[in-house]
Design a protein around this nucleic acid. Structure first.
Lengths: 243, 243
DNA sequence: CGAACCATTGATTCGCGTCAAACCCGGTGG
DNA sequence: CCACCGGGTTTGACGCGAATCAATGGTTCG
């Protein structure tokens, strides 16, 4: 039986290519039973040598690096369907930590099984490679934002990006989605202080672009939000292609 | 005969793993003859669908995105031994441009041949994947710098990183190397203005960390430079491992 | 009921951008 | 041979975006 927990991953891949039922089966067979983490817990730490790679099936996680003085920088947000530490399959040693942003649930894949995939399932291997390339594309977009955009643009862009990624995973019906990020965490992601995030958020809300109550974001004016952010989803590579 | 132009790539890979002579041969056979570009020329542009992937064999290139108002952000610097657009093998459409920072020389590999590698040479395919993961690691480090470090730290860190990468490629003997970057380009990479780059550079030089005359950088005090930058090369994954 | 965490607000400071001009240099053409 | 030009570097003056510091409320939870 195909593992229903992998649906968001399958959706993510099928938007970019065709996934055979055999390939789904292989992934399902390799997946562990789900494991839960509480918000704030670390799934993997810098310096670790994971022997399994972790796929988020519910909730949110983040890649981050901590500085000596306690400040941190987030370098990625991951949601259902995202691998959080697939790079460690080849990099071996984690060069950053991964923590749970919310209570979340994951399944893991033994590196041995994934390596087997690279040996015997070239197409599936390319799709795994693809997921790491999509992450890198997002990272380039973050660099652009951090280097050249103002806080409001960056923030609006982040909302656009997250909204689209959640749609792909099937988690943002009705232009509404849950995003369990504190303003401090948002600042850690965008390279801004929580105070400034707070004020910027108020500005954007007062422009009528979206609402954000508790964990719930509702997009009010998607067209205008995209324009505000200069958002172009090209870098998310949402088209199906033979990969 | 093994193609000598690929030496920097081989060095880069052999620092991280073992490369068989058959694998070298496969790469050599797939490589085109060298092609030259003048400084400022674009090798690939955003929106392109490359059918070949490009490896730098001499000189420097950069990934970048241009904003509507003319400002640009650089998201990567590439040197001999680096693939500049390997991601397009799977992403298909370029989501950024690649330009020549200096006069440079490249060889290209048909995507058909690289795909063949993914089908028949799983280990070599993993090494190609690895190179894209190394790029992503560098990008994460840039995000950390742009989000949380001051201009002097960022700049010092950039020098450290570039120096180590050039050493790997065999291009930085004697703590000296050529880096044909204008201060404007440096600013585009670090997300700073050229004016601020200029002043920050003066500060670092006056601290006796390095000299920078014309294109030549000479590291004066490597230990102190690393401390100044808080540089830890973990993210460059310089150790050999079975990948 | 207090502890802890998060959102919010005001006051102040500072790193860096912007603007503008001068300078330096190698290349070009009259 | 020299005037000129363009790209890069350097310098100064000024302003703004965002950090920092500090305090207040609101909520959740043990």
């Amino acid at each position: 039986m195909i593992n229903a927990l992998l649906e968001p991953l399958f959706r993510k891949l099928e938007i970019r290519d065709i996934l055979s039922s055999e390939e789904r089966q292989i992934l399902s067979d390799a997946a562990s039973s789900p494991v839960s983490f509480r918000a704030g817990a670390d799934l993997v730490a810098e310096g670790d040598r994971p022997e399994r790679s972790t796929l988020v099936v519910a909730g949110f996680t983040t890649r981050y690096r901590q500085l000596a003085d306690g400040r941190r920088q987030i370098t990625g947000i991951h949601m259902a369907g995202d691998f959080v530490d697939l790079p460690s399959l080849l990099l071996k040693v984690m060069d950053h930590s991964v923590g749970a942003l919310s209570d979340c649930s994951v399944v893991t894949f033994p590196h041995a099984a994934l390596r087997e995939v690279t040996e015997r399932q070239p197409h599936l291997a390319r799709l795994l490679w693809l997921t790491t390339l999509l992450d890198a594309g997002i990272l380039r977009e973050w660099v652009l934002g951090m280097g050249r955009l103002t806080a409001p643009q960056q923030l609006a862009h982040f909302i656009c990006e997250t909204y689209v990624r959640l749609q792909v995973a099937g988690l943002a019906p009705d232009r509404t989605f849950s995003l369990p990020l504190t303003q401090t965490a948002l600042g850690d992601a965008l390279g801004l202080s929580s105070v400034h995030i707070n004020r910027t958020l108020q500005d954007l809300r007062s422009e009528g672009l979206f609402t954000w109550e508790g964990n719930r974001i509702r997009i009010i004016d998607w067209e205008r939000l995209q324009r505000r952010a200069n958002f172009d989803p090209l870098y998310l590579h949402l088209h199906a292609e033979p990969r």
